[in-house]
Design a protein around this nucleic acid. Structure first.
Length: 577
DNA sequence: GCCGTTTTCGGCCCGACTGTTTTCAGTCG
């Protein structure tokens, strides 16, 4: 069973317990365990088989037993029992904004309503207002919420970071340049460079907040203001993206930015630890519980310092051990954009790229890189984009000639070779030996079973001319789940054979994920960050998302091979040793 | 239900908003 499915079942159980009136902390425990399972880089099913479930943060004896039961029987006995008393369809109602467990339970118990259709009918017939604490407004919100659910479908609307960031950066630049603006930063999940975002948070400081809010609401990207006040506003852009602006006085900017950057898990852990020191943290300051005296901070660094921590980079603020590391001076010095010296996975018009060899080479050189490996698809690639062995031989000459023209830049000839269903590659070894660099990737037969996929990847890693594994789990964020390969075994094989593994920086992929990249690094695998660019535009644009994934995986410059100049990188390739 | 530089029991962030209420419960981020 996939981690995402186990997590969904635990979330459902948490919802059922909540509807059953369980104490909130018990409900929270299930949600946190579900999150930990979703974030687990390795198969939780496999962890269960090995009796390792309790290694997951937030999973104790009880939840471990429930996961084991789920895997053995296909369902959790506790959930089955709850469903005898509480219709499972009530869980759907919790997705209506403003409706929580208490309200849903009251509607069910007192009106006998069991699903969304009955809820709609009751709201239309004004039956809801008969309940204590609910009125006409509640009915209105329920109908609005139901319409919203229908409109956006079953999936929670999360937007790819690469769609959110340009919008956020444009707004930040424009609002930040307003005369009334003192400081302005993007906050929230976009600042943490999470793969997908729900909305955009902007934090500003100003002595004339009203002017700033007016400028924000009137911006040309803004469609409508949903609410607007002295301290900020919430708007929808023409894209339909929600953007919140919060404005404070300059001396509280650090507190507000820290609060709204999150994540929730990070803030909860930060605040729990603060309480034990007799301090209380909020978006307005760090207060001493005893005296009530509050410290206002202009910068986030002051907030962390007051609590006994070194400054923590936003990408690390996920409640994954960063507070402990910040307290003991054990934070990694994260890789930064300018550390990257070359790119080792891109395409040209020879296969499915949009730019020519020369255009890609010039663009890479302009960007300040020292080298670029051109890796078009291989002989068995479909869609008319395949490259025959003869075409590749011609390409080798073409690259050598162009390379002679380029000063202080190394153009490398490579290939992104398909890993066949039997683990073999689709060029002869003699040809692969002539290349500077080979990325091996899966492009076909994803559904042949996890064990076979794992075997294919391991065979590729063991091949003497495979320098690197490309987009190893094949996921497309929000569209296609990763293959269920045994990432621990693939990493072990890669570390053993000296095969590198890429973080594919395409913002739709980010593959390795941050969780897998952290695991791979700890397993001793050498990581490369590649754009998989299909044109000069994405050659420049994609890299930041790969860097972001690396940073969220706690990687330093030393952990990533293409921070080295080509002369040193070249010696790290398997074929060089 | 989880977890331990004050705890194996008794804690488990902080504040705003909404809609319904005359002081608050429920929900949300």
């Amino acid at each position: 069973m996939k981690n995402s499915e186990i997590a969904a079942r635990l979330r459902e159980l948490g919802d059922l317990y909540e509807l059953d009136g369980a104490v909130s902390y018990r409900v929270l425990a299930y949600k946190q365990a579900a999150k930990a399972i979703l974030d687990s880089p390795v198969s939780v099913t496999q962890m269960a088989e090995q009796g390792r479930l309790e290694e997951l943060p937030g999973v104790g004896k009880t939840i471990a037993e429930k996961v084991s039961a789920l895997l053995a029987e296909g369902e959790i006995p506790a959930a089955r029992k709850l469903k005898e008393r509480i219709p499972a369809t009530l869980v759907d109602m919790l997705r209506i904004p403003g409706l929580g467990a208490k309200t849903v339970r009251a509607i069910h118990d007192q009106l006998g309503i069991e699903d969304l259709a009955q809820l709609q009918a009751a709201a239309e017939q004004q039956e809801i207002r008969g309940l204590k604490g609910l009125g006409a407004k509640a009915e209105e919100n329920i109908l609005k919420g139901l319409a919203g659910l229908e409109a956006r479908g079953a999936d929670e609307e999360r937007i790819l970071l690469s769609h959110v960031l340009p919008l956020a950066e444009r707004l930040a630049a424009d609002i930040g340049a307003h005369p009334a603006c003192d400081r302005l930063e993007i906050a929230g999940s976009a600042r943490r460079m999470v793969e997908t975002c729900k909305d955009i948070d902007l934090i500003a400081s100003s002595d004339q907040p009203a002017d700033l809010v007016t400028a924000f609401v009137g911006h040309e990207l803004v469609d409508e203001a949903r609410s607007k006040g002295e301290a900020g506003a919430s708007v929808l852009t023409h894209h339909g993206t929600k953007v919140d602006l919060r404005v404070v006085a300059p001396d509280q900017f650090g507190n507000l930015l820290q609060h709204f950057t999150g994540s929730q898990a990070h803030n909860v852990q930060l605040r729990e630890a603060a309480v034990k020191q007799g301090l209380s943290v909020s978006e307005y300051g760090v207060a001493e519980t005893e005296s009530g005296e509050s410290l206002r901070c202009r910068t986030e660094a002051e907030v962390y310092e007051r609590l006994g921590y070194r400054y923590i980079e936003p990408e690390l603020r996920e409640g994954r051990g960063e507070l402990e590391a910040a307290r003991t001076d054990a934070l990694p010095e994260l890789i930064v954009d300018k550390d990257i010296r070359g790119d080792l996975h891109c395409h040209t018009t020879l296969s499915d790229g949009r730019s020519t060899l020369r255009e890609m080479a010039s663009a890479a050189k302009r960007m300040g890189y020292g080298y670029l490996a051109v890796t078009d698809h291989s002989a068995s690639h479909g869609f008319g984009d395949h490259v025959t062995a003869d075409q590749l031989r011609k390409r080798i000459d073409e690259v050598r000639n162009l390379n002679d023209e380029l000063k202080r830049f190394t153009l490398l000839v490579g290939s992104e070779v398909n890993i066949g269903t039997d683990g073999s590659l689709d060029y002869p070894d003699e040809l692969l030996a002539e290349l500077d660099w080979v990325v091996a990737s899966l492009h076909t037969s994803f559904r042949m079973g996890d064990a076979k996929l794992t075997a294919r990847m391991i065979m590729a890693a063991e091949h003497p001319y495979v320098d690197c594994l490309g987009h190893p789990t094949g996921r497309l964020i929000g569209r296609r789940e990763p293959y269920g390969i045994d990432i621990e075994r693939v990493c072990a094989a890669a570390a053993e054979t000296g095969t590198m593994i890429e973080i594919n920086a395409n913002p739709n992929r980010r593959d390795l994920s941050e969780h897998h990249a952290r695991l791979a690094n700890e397993a001793g695998v050498r990581i490369v960050i590649n754009t998989d660019a299909h044109g000069v535009d994405t050659l420049a644009e994609n890299m930041r998302y790969g860097i972001a994934t690396a940073r969220r995986a706690w990687l330093t410059k030393a952990d990533v091979a293409n921070t080295l100049p080509w002369s040193r990188f070249a010696k790290l390739r398997k074929r060089a040793g």
